[in-house]
Amino acid sequence: MTLLMDTDVIASEPNAHGYAEFTLGEFHFRRDEYFVYVKWPTGSHVMSADAFLRAMQRDVAWNFFYGIVNFDGVVGTVNHYGTVDLFAGRYNDAYRKAEMDHVENFQSENIKATFEGMLADWTNASFDPFASPEETGSAFGDKNGSNLAAVTRRRVASRRMVSCDDDEQLRTDATHPINRMFADVPQDSPSVEPEPGFESEVKAYNLFAYLSRSDVTWNPSVVSVCKDSLYCPTTEEYILPIIHGNDRVEWFVQLSDEIIWAVEDRDTGAARTRVVMKPGDVASMPANIRHQGYAPKRAMLLVWENADGALPELYATGKLPSHPVDF
């Protein structure tokens, strides 16, 4: 039996494990105690339920992000900023050669509604897909409640700078206690001494203290804006739950601790490099690669993005080189 959750979401009655099954175009999704199963006309795939939910959480929260969000080496989405491709095997050389790959394009709001429905229904009360594995309960088992507060967190997006008037405000003990792995991060504030009349423009805050209080991992959030130049720092622990395929150059600045990046060809998955980043290191990620990070200890990473909407087309058509600088 098919149940319409709203005008765009096609979901079944609960299956034997208590979870709805979802249909989007010719894709079908179902989960049981441990796994998520994805079917499309030319193939099928299985993922661990926790990995699938962590990936889907980022895809939904980031509104499909910049470029490609690979849930793993087979399934993912491509953001066309208004529409979104849902694909299986499209960026996997073996699936392409076997002609098992499949792509469908959806209006962004339609695919997002289905993904939100899946995330809400398949996330049990014990599981927070944004938390590190040490800081959340299990994703597994039969349907057991829900965790809507966790899966519908508001994304932080400063318009000028955190702490400015009418903008994102500082984090406090009341709402954001210091993370256990950042207990030693100084919480001091800068001395800010505005003259009368300039209180709204003489502004400074402790970014590192702000990040030490983040309750999520692998979730870039805008903290300062210079036209299209966005500082999107994030705190990282364990493994980036997606493999991010770039549609533009992005940059990483390692603010604390260490992250190891596995970098692959964006379209085939062939290995390109490993990038080991330590405090103060800066690296660009070219526009034709995909990357996945590994953080042994919670780390502060500054992701630097250029939000210019013309860039994907310029890179895709070869009008811009895939790397940022020639020297």
């Binding site: 100084p186 001395s191 505005p194 203290a209």
Partner: peptide
């Protein structure tokens, strides 16, 4: 006119 003064240390971001 003078707008003000900030003294910032490691991790502090100033507009």
């Amino acid at each position: 006119p003078r707008m003000g003064r900030v003294v910032a240390r490691r991790g502090h971001m100033t507009l």
